[in-house]
Amino acid sequence: MTRRRLYLMRHGAVSYFDPVSGAPLQAETVPLTAAGQDQARAAGLLFAAQNVRFDRVVCSGLPRTRQTAAAVLAELPGPQPAIEEVPALREIHGGRLRDIAPAELDAVFTTLQRGPLTDDTRFLGGESLGELWARALPATQRLLAEPWDCALWVLHGVVNAALLSHWVSGGQRLLLPGWQQDPACINIVDLGGPGDALLRAVNLNAQDLLRPQERLSTMEKLLADFTRRG
Rank of each mutant, 00 (worst) to 15 (best):
P24E: 08
Q39M: 07
A40I: 01
D38W: 10
P24F: 12
A13T: 09
V20T: 14
R10D: 01
V14E: 02
A27L: 07
A27C: 06
V14W: 00
A35I: 14
Y16S: 01
A34T: 15
V20R: 12
H11P: 00
D18G: 08
Q26L: 12
D38T: 14
G12E: 01
L25K: 06
E28A: 15
A35W: 08
E28G: 09
L46F: 12
E28C: 09
V14D: 02
H11N: 07
G22C: 10
M9V: 11
G44P: 04
R5W: 13
F47T: 00
P19K: 05
L46V: 13
L25Y: 12
D38I: 10
T29D: 12
T29I: 05
V20C: 10
A43K: 03
P31R: 08
R41W: 03
Q39P: 03
D18N: 06
R10F: 06
D18A: 09
T29W: 11
R5N: 10
G12H: 02
G12A: 12
A34F: 15
R10I: 03
H11S: 00
L45M: 10
S21Q: 04
A40P: 04
L45T: 15
S15H: 08
L6A: 07
R10M: 08
A13I: 05
A35D: 15
A13M: 06
S15D: 14
G44E: 11
G36R: 00
A43W: 08
A13W: 01
Q37S: 15
R41M: 13
L45R: 15
F17D: 03
V14T: 11
V20Q: 15
Q37M: 12
Y16Q: 04
L45E: 08
S15I: 09
A23L: 12
G44S: 11
F47C: 02
A42D: 08
L45N: 04
F47S: 01
L46S: 09
T33D: 04
G22L: 03
A13L: 12
L8V: 06
A34Q: 15
Y7L: 11
S21D: 06
Y7K: 02
P24M: 07
D38N: 06
G36C: 08
G44K: 09
V20K: 05
G22W: 07
A35P: 01
L8K: 05
D38K: 10
R10V: 07
L45W: 04
A34W: 13
Y7P: 02
